Amino acid sequence: MLPEVHGWLRRRTSSAGDWPVRDLVAAKGETTVSVVLPARDERETVGEIVGVIRRELAPLVDELVVIDSRSTDDTARVAARAGARVHAQDEILPQLKPMDGKGEALWKSLAVTSGDVLVFADADIRNFRASFILGVLGPLLADPSVMYTKGCYDRPLHGTPNGGGRVTELVARPLINLHWPELAGFVQPLAGEYAGRRSALERVPFLTGYAVELGLLIDLLELAGLDGFAQVDLGSREHAPQCTEALGRMSSQIMLAAWSRLERQGRITAAAAPSLRLSQFRRGPEGHEVLVRDIGIGERPPMITVSA
């Protein structure tokens, strides 16, 4: 690890317990805060998450928005009943051709929120705690030089305290250490809990799908530098694990995100465009069947360049 990353870890890493709500309310001043939950078919958890935020963080959070990403269940109704303002992803900026996935939902949230600081959190978290929001918000309210805060945590899986995060350990972390070693201090580079200043988030593009988190880290590093980042230990985080096939598709999008940024930075020259389809295998009645999946990602431009 680079010496400057060791120094950053000492200066810029804290714990969620370091940021009690009363201190953040005092530090908030005139700063406005928007919390955004991107959600697709998360009726089992989204209501509880909205409820915790409304009950415990009312003095801190100015608006709480759920972006419903084409749910086929009643996620939108559950979130609205719990007290969130709900927007359908495809109804935001309808003049634009729709794109898919989480990155699209997060990018569009910039168009329907007004907070100076935006906090993003996944809507599938079990046993959600208000400290997930407080932790990533704390450094931004306490220090004007911080532009972006990323959460980190343990990820239990099948009784193993850190059994989760397979895409991080097998794909994202090796790519980061190889090509962007300044980012090697992030424990959970793909974490879904993070916060940033609108002034920074509106000036970078958003990759769609599961590529959004890696893309934001790389692009914001160019914009703000490593010392513009902070990291907060949120403890432990539980959510429903995905199957291996889904993790394979996620990994492919992470690799495409890295490819796009290496090409943009002039560090690789593409002889041919990468394949946007992934062949996977599943055993059927007559042997192994080939499943071909579209793993292509899109990119939205910096929101500041998009007219109302």
Rank of each mutant, 00 (worst) to 15 (best):
V61N: 11
L37C: 08
L106K: 12
M147V: 07
I53D: 02
G151I: 04
S109Q: 10
K108P: 03
L134N: 07
E48R: 03
L141R: 07
E48H: 11
G135A: 06
S71G: 12
S34R: 03
D116L: 10
R85N: 09
T149N: 01
P94M: 01
G51K: 02
T32C: 09
F128W: 10
D116R: 09
K150R: 12
L37K: 05
Y153L: 06
H87F: 15
K97D: 15
C152L: 06
T45G: 02
V46P: 07
L24S: 04
V52P: 14
V36S: 03
V46L: 06
S71M: 02
V25H: 00
V112T: 05
V146L: 10
D154E: 04
V146K: 00
P139M: 11
A80N: 08
V112P: 06
W107K: 14
S131M: 03
G135K: 02
V33C: 06
A26V: 03
L140H: 02
D68Q: 01
V146Q: 00
V35S: 00
V52W: 05
E63S: 12
F132K: 02
V33R: 01
S145C: 08
G47A: 05
F128K: 00
F120D: 01
T31V: 13
I125W: 11
I67G: 01
V52D: 00
V136A: 03
E48V: 05
P38G: 00
R70I: 09
A80K: 11
V119L: 10
A84Q: 03
S69T: 12
R77L: 15
T32K: 07
N127C: 11
T113M: 06
A27Q: 07
G138D: 02
G47S: 06
L24Y: 02
V112W: 13
H87N: 11
K150V: 15
D90F: 04
K150P: 02
H87Q: 14
T149V: 11
L137T: 01
L93C: 10
I49M: 13
T32R: 09
A111M: 13
D154N: 10
L57K: 14
E91F: 13
P156F: 06
D41M: 07
D73N: 14
V86E: 10
E42D: 14
N127L: 14
A79Q: 03
P94N: 06
D154I: 00
A88D: 09
E42S: 12
E48N: 11
E63G: 09
I92D: 11
H87G: 04
Y148E: 09
Q89Y: 11
L64E: 04
L141Y: 04
R155D: 10
T45K: 06
K102E: 15
L110T: 09
I49Y: 13
V52M: 03
V33L: 06
A88I: 06
Q89L: 13
R126V: 07
D143Y: 09
S69L: 10
D143C: 13
K102Q: 15
P59S: 14
A105N: 10
G138V: 09
P156H: 03
P94L: 02
L64K: 03
D62E: 14
L96D: 08
H87V: 07
T160K: 11
L134Y: 05
A79N: 02
M147D: 05
P38N: 08
N127Y: 09
L96F: 15
V61F: 02
V117G: 04
E44K: 15
T72C: 04
T32H: 06
A111P: 04
L24P: 01
P144E: 00
